[in-house]
Amino acid sequence: MEKYGKLRDLVSQLAGVYLKDAPAVTDTQILYAHDASYLIQVLQGSLSPQEQQEIGFPWSTQMVERSRRSAGATLAAAKIALQEGVAVNLAGGTHHAYRNKGSGFCVFNDSAIAARALQKEIHPKLKVAIVDLDVHQGNGTASILKNDPSIFTLSIHGENNFPFTKEVSDLDIGLPDGTGDESYLEALHQGLEKLGERFKPDFIIYLAGADPHEGDRLGKLSITKDGMRQRDVCVFQFGLDHQIPIAFSMAGGYGKEIQSTVDIHFQTIQTALQYQKRYA
């Protein structure tokens, strides 16, 4: 949790960045992606001990509020990106949350909520791609959106990492342990090329996890800090080339040294800022 405050402190010093408090998503917006029975459980604090254990932390009113605002920040970033090209949620990326349960430190699925909210509240025919580059597969996102042809899910992740039972995204690229920069970036180029060919999105939600980095405790991949920068460049350049707005979230990051995770997240934001200025 400490990384979020450290990241915000760094971002607040960047010229050209406007920080805004995260709004909370409404019950109606949560229900775009989640079952009513699950939402009631979360709001009332009636999750069983086993359900809380799967989420990874105990229920509290603060947990509910933070989960609302984490999802609300991704939606707010998405609405700003429609106007300005690029915007960021300094948290988010809660991609293990399913329609009817939380998992892996994720209560509400911010990407699925934001994608559906954009379609229901802004542009009903908007084609949204979720580009998930957290080292863990976006299993909850894939499950929630598996029968929705208007939203494309792309996940590039460690094949042998959590979750150990994978869901089926529209495009999954599972990488072996120890994958380095060259192989990773090649897989990303191929993934984005297939995304462009098969779907032609109008909007991208990008999960910019720091956990593919070689210094991550849970990542199992071997991507250097410069490789992480090149990863971000690939995504933002793809958006710029096709004039596709991008909202992105920080997603995972569990560095052996917390500052390394903060630095990678900050590098992503610096890279995004360079591209934001170039949108028409």
Rank of each mutant, 00 (worst) to 15 (best):
I55Q: 07
S103E: 14
K79P: 02
L133K: 00
V88K: 09
P149Y: 06
Y98P: 08
D226S: 13
F164T: 01
I173G: 02
Q190H: 14
T261D: 04
Q62S: 15
P124N: 05
A210T: 05
S12E: 11
E51A: 11
I113W: 03
A78H: 09
Q50V: 13
F164D: 02
G16N: 07
G209D: 00
H34C: 04
A71D: 10
N100M: 06
E51S: 08
P58D: 09
L90M: 08
S70M: 12
Q52P: 01
D21Q: 10
F248D: 04
L171K: 07
I223R: 00
S143T: 13
T26D: 07
D263V: 06
L133N: 04
G104K: 01
R116T: 09
L207F: 07
I204T: 01
K220R: 12
A73K: 10
P49I: 01
H34P: 01
T141F: 05
H136P: 04
I246L: 02
E121F: 03
V235R: 05
M1N: 11
Q270C: 12
L240Q: 08
F199H: 05
Q237C: 08
P176N: 01
H213E: 08
K120I: 07
E182N: 13
H189P: 11
S12I: 06
P176K: 01
K166F: 10
E186W: 12
Y18C: 15
A272P: 07
H157A: 00
E182H: 13
E197D: 12
F199D: 03
L145H: 03
